[in-house]
Design a binder for these strands. Structure first.
Lengths: 243, 243
DNA sequence: CGAGACGTTGACCTCCTTCAAGAGAAGTGG
DNA sequence: CCACTTCTCTTGAAGGAGGTCAACGTCTCG
């Protein structure tokens, strides 16, 4: 569960005691191939998930085939903490790359929260961040132009890749096809292609297979009006106020 | 806190013991005039909120003035349960009508959860539902046409008004100007106006001041491809009396 | 080497925006 | 009670951002 530890350290001063508590978390690993579904709409999951490796996407497909991606999940992301009140999932989670997740049993999670430990608080942070990402997705798709959307999402993913320990400076592996980008941004893949090429020609980005490099991050930020406050990653340690 | 009780009864069999626990919740009422902000972006709220009366909106305004509403809050809605890990709010909450909220102290909320009571579980339900509404907002604005969006949002608000005990059959008070609708749906208010008139002429809706009447709900549902599963209200122990 | 996924590009079209201007409704102050 | 401002709603005309359709190129992998 290296990805989890790395992540939680962003949100709390994890000490030996907390580490031990986390290591003792009951659950198990499961692997999914690229394209497989981790959770299907209508299922009733009884575990929470931690992404250990790979990227996944939460998405909804309408009856006529239109598809919308709600958000992406990177290594270290925790999701479905609401298993306490398990109801049918209203969406699907699909592996983009091959994915390894750790499934945490409901009971184990509960005891972590009940203890009022820092580790429990860190889980809350994860939930908070995930909701904030959803909110930003609404703003991005609701009130930004295609250009702004593409630039904004790229900056978000780069930032999150760094947090996940998967980025090398300005370059990172972004294993997302243009069609997936389109489904995330509410655009057609043809238009996403045009915008990407435009950003490329403007010298903002460079792409080589799945490796994306930000050649001019300042410019991108300006285009996207990007402010990473919503990722809630600045200076967290002081703020933990659980219990 | 009538609005809260009414709401929680949708999500759990609240007994006398739970009722007592809820009535003992520490906190207080606060009133806001229409247009006032309950929470400003950048503030650090230390309480969770329960809407007792009136409608509010969670919204983000971009630097250039474009504004996006994330979701609407109706009586009985609970929000900002994540105060445990209080960070700066990344959005603003504005009163649409005059609003009365109950502010719950962090500590009080915690003890409710720790007890593992039904009342605590009901709060989790509220959080789950709110997130689901956010997700649906992404799908709606990302992959639906203007017509579909308007119809879909109207159906959602009608359903939620019923849950909040504020709807009389097919009619309900929807105190939302066309400009606000536009900000919620990522459209221009001019176009919202046109779509509303179109739905009116098609005999689907009727509007009289803030009172909206669904004249042909079946048709609306067809237009919107509306399925209220995401509101998570079907599987309750209590039978939903859908007047 | 062939199949299938993914990316690229052009032509045309449409849904929605923007601009503009006017009509009601509603509050405000004299 | 009437002039006033100020919202909100309404409607038309023109333009543009992005969608759709179609065809072709490229990469990967079995």
């Amino acid at each position: 569960m290296d990805a989890l530890f790395r992540r939680l350290r962003y949100y709390a001063d994890i000490g030996d005691r907390e580490l031990a508590a986390l290591k003792a978390l009951k659950g198990g690993f499961e692997d999914f191939a690229s394209g497989e579904d981790l959770i299907n709409r209508g299922e009733r999951p009884s575990e929470a998930f931690i992404v250990e490796k790979g990227w996944a996407a939460r998405n909804v497909t309408l009856r006529d085939g239109r598809s919308q991606i709600l958000n992406f999940m990177l290594p270290g992301d925790v999701f479905d903490l609401q298993v306490f009140v398990a109801d049918k999932a209203d969406h699907t989670i699909t592996a983009i790359t091959s994915v390894r997740v750790f499934q945490v049993e409901r009971r184990a999670l509960l005891s972590l929260f009940d203890g009022g430990t820092r580790a429990g608080a860190a889980f809350w942070w994860c939930a908070l961040q995930e909701e904030a990402i959803l909110r930003e997705q609404i703003v991005r798709n609701g009130r930004r132009s295609a250009r702004e959307r593409v630039a904004h999402l790229i900056l978000e993913l780069h930032r999150r890749a760094i947090i996940a320990g998967e980025a090398e400076g300005e370059s990172f592996v972004m294993p997302i096809s243009q069609a997936l980008l389109a489904d995330a941004l509410g655009l057609s893949f043809v238009h996403v292609n045009r915008v990407l090429r435009e950003l490329h020609h403007a010298g903002c980005i460079e792409r080589n297979r799945t490796i994306l490099t930000l050649k001019d991050r300042a410019r991108l930020r300006e285009i996207a009006d990007f402010d990473d406050d919503y990722l809630h990653i600045k200076d967290n340690r002081r703020r933990l106020v659980y219990a």
